[in-house]
Design a protein around this nucleic acid. Sequence first.
DNA 1: GCTTGACCCTGACGCAGCGTCAGGGCTCCA
DNA 2: TGGAGCCCTGACGCTGCGTCAGGGTCAAGC
Lengths: 260, 260
Amino acid sequence: MLTIGQLAAYAGVTVRAVRHYHQIGLLPEPDRDASGYRRYGTAAVLSLIKIRTLAAAGVPLSHIRRMLEADPAAFAEAVRKIDDDLRDEIERLETSRRQIAQLAAGDSLALPPEVAHYLDRLRALGVSDVMVQGERDGWILIAARWPDRVHEWIPAKLAELEDPQVSGLYRLLSEIFDSDTGDDDPRLVEVADIMAGFADRALAAGQTDFDEAAQDDLPFDLMDALAVEADPRVRRLQALMRKRGWARWTRFDRVPEKPG
Amino acid sequence: MLTIGQLAAYAGVTVRAVRHYHQIGLLPEPDRDASGYRRYGTAAVLSLIKIRTLAAAGVPLSHIRRMLEADPAAFAEAVRKIDDDLRDEIERLETSRRQIAQLAAGDSLALPPEVAHYLDRLRALGVSDVMVQGERDGWILIAARWPDRVHEWIPAKLAELEDPQVSGLYRLLSEIFDSDTGDDDPRLVEVADIMAGFADRALAAGQTDFDEAAQDDLPFDLMDALAVEADPRVRRLQALMRKRGWARWTRFDRVPEKPG
DNA sequence: GCTTGACCCTGACGCAGCGTCAGGGCTCCA
DNA sequence: TGGAGCCCTGACGCTGCGTCAGGGTCAAGC
């Protein structure tokens, strides 16, 4: 006859676990000896080993109870379900691991790798760190809203960067935001003119690279707010754009709003 | 400005989760509007998306807090550790899954597949179901004690079964246990003579197939008890073996005890 | 102006599977 | 005879929220 400590050691579990199994009725309470100690026989050892085996495989204790008293067919069925759950869980963890791996580089926290590449390209074109960080935050908002569509949009954005006018615009914005001027900086008007030009041309070409998904205004509202928080002169830019017939600021070079 | 519901929906978490993050200080409490509702800005959206990304990867919330305020080097280090943990966890689950797969067949619950094969061989030799089940339970005890060594011992046991005397002994035992005789069944003496013969020969040949590991008596004590519980006539067999100089019953054909 | 439904608030308990005291008794060995 | 190392019960703690309970608020339609 074994004590609870010997039983637990034999089965490779803790004493506390055995008592827990008693408490929830998974393992029957054995008889006590003269001093009130629990004493276990072989049946308990075998049961406990089976319980440990299933529990180690991640089977919930409530299922284990049912499995141990089930007939072979029901048992096999339960095993199949557990195996399916395990497969799903492994898959989930592997997905997490891939995301975590990308996350190692600072930029890609919560961002797919294509976006990180796009940000690198911006940096290479001479866009300032502050602006790249703003772009990154914007893409985090986009990726959270349309995680599956980012990989469609990024190539178009990368292609746009090949246009010297576009990259020039980004650099010009960088310079403005890096400088300490006020709302009266004349370069703001210059920027608005360029941007309105892009937007007009895109509209004429029927170009809608953020397409129907962009019906949802919220992400763009947030991005506008983000931009204003990053630099208050953006508010002036928004006003200038409105005067030129464009409602939002962040969406201007993505999907044109109907002028008005 | 977003309400808590809008914020949660945007980040893909529940409202309750957001409130929980406030409670543990992971996400700062925002300002309230006139009616006491929480109102969130873009910073909260970005934070929450990052938190969700890390949490979905299984990072404990307590770590997330530290990570979000860590410098890039410490962050990268933390990410590496998380990745290691994920790898270990995946490994563990895959091991579980392999065990679970074996467990689909009734016999192999808590048993390695070689043992299941050994049990099948016993059945094929005409050993009764009851005896095979007894053997199975014995091997569960063995496998729990020396999980790494079972695969060394099983081939020797399989080889022994090739000896017609051994398989004959198993069948004889099967017949006895299947019949309804008492302690005076003369076949018990026959069995004891055969077993003692095996034990003597094994001792002479210096054969110790359970070797030093078997210093630990407990598993064999349990197996003896198991056998007695399965059939009380085993007690008679034990007595007969003792008269022939062998202390235990279940270990007789595994490692010979020093006669005494 | 009033209702209705969908939000929001705080506070509190529940869940799984034990770990970990606290405060006591038993046993065995030197 | 004393101390180490077992055993006992009872109770709280941990994670990451889900889920009431018992309220107030807001926007829309009547």
